[in-house]
């Protein structure tokens, strides 16, 4: 048992959580219980982010998906449905969906497994001891300054700088979308 085995074990647990939670979502009879399975699935995905070295995203996943979206879903269920479940939660498309989705997962799996992804020999990113040179700093104005210590990819500060420079348009568009959604949700829900 080495460090690799431990990491792979963690991955296995998290993958099982996310996939098992997802199965629970589509199998549960009661909407409320399937929302609870959904939360388990979200937590599993957050764990996958941690194994990928994206700690910030893992935290955001828990904050937004578990703390906000799931709670919103639970809230909507409580406000609308009676607490007992539905004996027939599915429509008549189960057979059709299975016929369609079996080839889909097969193709996705085959593609993911066989495609020749240009994986970098390690995808292990240098962690420290480097500093940014002038050319790089010039290429990313504002994001990095000459002489900056190397910023590890998990760095929140680095993600923030990139969001505010390279991906500024996306950032602004998302802000506007969020504002519109906020106003829209209030207008719609206020009969």
């Amino acid at each position: 048992m080495s460090q690799q085995t431990v990491v792979q074990l963690v991955f296995g647990v998290m993958a099982a959580l996310s996939l098992g939670g997802a199965m629970g979502v589509v199998m549960a009879r009661t909407v409320f219980v399937s929302a609870l399975w959904l939360i388990l699935s979200f937590v599993g995905v957050a764990g996958l982010y941690i194994t990928l070295g994206a700690g910030f995203l893992a935290v955001i996943q828990v904050l937004v998906y578990v703390g906000a979206i799931s709670v919103l879903i639970l809230f909507a269920i409580m406000l609308t449905e009676d607490v007992m479940g539905d004996e027939h939660p599915n429509n008549g498309q189960v057979g059709l969906a299975i016929i369609l989705l079996t080839p889909l997962i097969f193709l996705l799996g085959k593609w993911g497994f066989t495609a020749n992804w240009p994986v970098k020999a390690a995808a292990i990113l240098p962690r420290s001891g480097l500093s940014v040179d002038a050319a790089t700093a010039a290429a990313l104005p504002g994001a990095l300054k000459t002489g900056d210590a190397f910023l590890v990819p998990d760095s929140v500060a680095y993600l923030g700088r990139v969001l505010m420079t390279e991906h500024f348009l996306a950032f602004e568009v998302v802000s506007v979308v969020l504002l519109v959604a906020l106003v829209g949700a209030i207008v719609i829900a206020r009969d």
Binding site: L36, I39, V59, I60, V62, L63, V66, G67, A68, S70, V71, L74
Partner: peptide, 11 residues
């Protein structure tokens, strides 16, 4: 981390 874990208590 604090805020996100604390928000899980609602569930």
């Amino acid at each position: 981390y604090f805020i996100s874990v604390a928000s899980v208590v609602i569930v």
